[in-house]
Nucleic acid binder design. Structure first.
Lengths: 243, 243
DNA sequence: ACAAAAGTGTTATCGCTACACCCATGT
DNA sequence: ACATGGGTGTAGCGATAACACTTTTGT
């Protein structure tokens, strides 16, 4: 924050003293998505602090005065769940006057995608508990968090069709059928196996590994990994990801 | 805002007194797009108040303590330009610590689309002047408004491909070639006339009027209007707008 | 041998691209 | 008559949807 004090007056037509404007708090709320066993899930915490103590909520907290909002989202998520290093993007801001019972809090909704196999979230700080919930059976949440969750899910679904976001929800190595299953539960749509394979392999974004599934009681499937740098190259040449 | 006072303490791990958090201001900034003569334009105001007095900027101002952010965006736009009743949607929030020289201000970026023929914006309040600028030749703007503008333009372009937003930039009655020209400058892409006609007419979203162009020195084109209620019906049945 | 899922190939159809062409109006 | 844009028709190509089929592993 700059080291100047707010001036005593701001150029508003109603001549309201500027100090009256500087009474907002800003928070960040992070909707965390994960995928396992064919289900799209969302990580919720149980609040160990007022207000809404004991209720389920999306991890979120107030932004510090000297902290930018993207960093705040990462910090808060780390403090409450221990999660770091995941895909994260802004979803939408929520600014209803009475959305927070303690005062005027405008919140910026973020959504994150995590590879469940690589992360092990643990409740900490004022999060008393932490649990994955199927996105289709989410309980009533604190504040306006149901609305935030739905808006984030909406944006995730739209963006996942045009950007290769799905790979952030799978392990680094995955089979084509796992990828297909992910997109099916994400988009709520069935795909034809041979056609899905062709489409996704034709994009040249998947790198086949010299490795196959283990401990399956059928023919083991080849493992692939997503080649992100290749995607960035192709994008420069006008390539358009689409599922 | 609820009539409770903020409690003196918030459930944050560092035990910071809650009053330290309630020192943000929140603003809204509205990027207004218009279209005329084959050019996509953006409406800028010249600031008549500090900071950045005299500089060009996107219309925006602080949100009142008792006002939700969507309403604030409409109010501010009305106060500074006289504009009302247009398409408006959130683009993105901007929350760098030092983005505002007067204090900590987190801003919510909105973008609006207006039909230039139906609106006549006038600078008022602390807006000293007001001018349409070609989106390709925007001057250096106050605050981080260039960034806000670019992000909004980006989102407009993406959303315009999947939602019928273009109609908000044309007069109520328009010809198919005008529509094509709009999408060409919006998306920076040329379309084949016969194919564009077919695609857009096949959607059944355009209502042909018993009216043609006037005062043109060639065969006058038929006028159409966008049927929004039809779009909403089709959307329920899974129809997907795409240009 | 059988179950289960991996993986491949082929055909028919649909939609789109790229054109060529004709039409109506003002000068 | 001609310039200008309005408006239509069609052939061919390419993507993809639908489906049948073969392969590999574990039990």
């Amino acid at each position: 924050m700059p080291d100047r004090e707010p001036s005593t007056y701001y150029g508003n037509i109603y001549k309201i003293p500027i100090t009256d404007f500087y009474k907002f708090a800003v928070s960040v709320d992070c909707v965390i998505f994960g995928y396992e066993l064919g289900k799209l899930e969302v990580l919720l915490i149980q609040r160990g602090a007022e207000p809404y103590k004991g209720q389920w909520a999306v991890p979120g907290d107030l932004v510090y005065p000297y902290e930018n909002i993207d960093n705040a989202a990462k910090r808060v998520l780390g403090e409450l769940t221990g999660l770091t290093d995941m895909y994260m993007d802004q979803a939408k801001a929520f600014g209803e006057v009475d959305r927070h019972p303690v005062g005027r809090v405008v919140t910026i909704g973020y959504f994150s995608l995590i590879k469940k196999e690589l992360h092990n979230p643990q409740a900490s700080s004022w999060a008393e508990n932490l649990e994955w919930h199927d996105v289709n059976t989410v309980p009533q949440l604190a504040f306006d968090h149901n609305e935030i969750l739905n808006a984030s899910l909406d944006r995730l679904r739209k963006r996942a069709r045009r950007q290769p976001l799905g790979f952030n929800l799978l392990p680094d190595k995955f089979t084509l059928l796992e990828l297909q299953g992910l997109y099916e539960s994400l988009l709520g749509e069935k795909f034809d196996k041979p056609n899905f394979r062709k489409k996704v392999l034709d994009m040249k974004l998947l790198e086949p590994l010299n490795e196959v599934q283990r401990n399956v009681k059928h023919r083991p499937a080849k493992l692939f990994k997503f080649n992100e740098s290749r995607y960035n190259e192709l994008k420069k040449d006008g390539f358009d990801f689409a599922i």
